[in-house]
């Protein structure tokens, strides 16, 4: 079971966990960090309350860009079938 592909898989699973923590921090942090004041004194960005803009719009776009980046540069392609693997090593 000490498949070399599993090392890659484990690394990528950890990246997934890190991404989800970043995702949560942005989403939750902006929402309750900027939105906990009195709603009638909110500042607005592009028509949306600032907390909403940063947490749900900019935060989401940032996550998508981050995910594209992570996939392109940190994820490795591996074969899934055992016989293909044995040909490599």
């Amino acid at each position: 079971m000490n498949d070399k592909r599993f090392k890659i898989a484990h690394r990528e699973a950890i990246i997934g966990v890190i991404l989800v923590i970043i995702n949560f921090s942005i989403w939750f942090g902006f929402a309750y960090g900027m939105g906990s004041g009195d709603p009638s004194s909110y500042t607005y960005v592009l028509g949306f309350p600032a907390w909403f803009f940063y947490s749900c719009i900019a935060g989401t776009i940032f996550m998508v860009i981050l995910i594209v980046f992570v996939i392109k540069f940190l994820f490795t392609e591996v074969p899934f079938d055992d016989d293909e693997e044995s040909e490599h090593k």
């Binding site: 498949d3 599993f6 966990v17 991404l19 995702n23 989403w27 989401t60």
Partner: peptide, 19 residues
């Protein structure tokens, strides 16, 4: 909060599950 559903499942189950 549902955003992770788009990437998290595939990253966590990911290649290991497929193999």
């Amino acid at each position: 909060a549902q955003l992770p559903a788009g990437y998290f499942v595939l990253m966590i189950l990911g290649k290991k599950f497929a193999i």
